[in-house]
Simulated scan of single mutants.
Amino acid sequence: MINGAQDQARVVSVSRDGTHRFSKPVVDEIVLVEGWGIEGDAHAGTTVQHRSRVARDPSQPNLRQVHLLHAEVFDEVAQDGFDVAPGAMGENVTTRGVDLLGLPEGTLLRLGDDAVVRVTGLRNPCQQINDFEPGLLRAVLGRADDGTVERKGGVMSVVVAGGTVRGGDRIDVELPTGTHVPLAPV
């Protein structure tokens, strides 16, 4: 949540692409399939689908079925002269009003009426971001005051309940019980 305003948390837009490309086109709706990902998206599957990870070990579980990115990062990078729109950074769900990067591992996000994803970790911004827009990597990958790396490329998740998600849908956040584990790259 941002400023405790969970009732304002919304899906801005949704994107999918059946081909491995950096950006994904915005569509009217996406269908999430439990344990699989997004119907018709190249990154759907029970095992890892990202090409670099498949090359290392194709049997790894797919902890990156759905990529969520906060629209607030678009506002932030716009101050540095970058014009980034929903889907451009490869995310499936663009959000507003949820501090995605501050969520602990295992947080459940209800998207719309039925779909639920479990947050597995951070997206690790890579060189492809600079190939898309030179210098953008520096804007989404920085250092905090304590020297730790800040990754602002969104979060990855797996589908725990299927359903249809559309722009404008409400997002409800359910934090895990017990000790909260900070997100790490997956």
Rank of each mutant, 00 (worst) to 15 (best):
D28G: 11
D41L: 04
Q79N: 09
V181F: 06
S13H: 12
E76I: 12
V160E: 10
D75E: 15
G168A: 11
H43Q: 13
L108S: 06
E34L: 08
S59Y: 04
V165P: 00
T19L: 12
L122K: 03
G40R: 08
L32S: 01
A88L: 15
T46D: 13
A144E: 10
I30K: 06
L68Q: 10
I129H: 09
A9C: 13
L69Q: 03
V11Q: 06
E150L: 14
V140Q: 06
P25H: 12
V186F: 05
L100C: 01
W36C: 05
V119M: 07
G102L: 11
N3T: 02
R10W: 01
A71K: 00
V48G: 01
P61G: 03
G112R: 03
A115L: 09
V186W: 01
P61V: 12
E72D: 14
A42R: 11
G112T: 12
G81V: 07
T19I: 15
H43L: 13
P58N: 09
V149Y: 02
L69H: 11
E133H: 15
T177A: 13
V73Y: 02
G18S: 14
F82T: 05
H180D: 08
R56V: 13
E133K: 11
V73M: 12
W36H: 13
T95W: 00
V11K: 03
H180A: 13
C126V: 06
F74G: 05
H70N: 10
L109I: 03
D146K: 02
L32H: 05
M156I: 02
H67M: 14
Q79R: 14
D99M: 03
V165E: 02
G162V: 03
L68R: 06
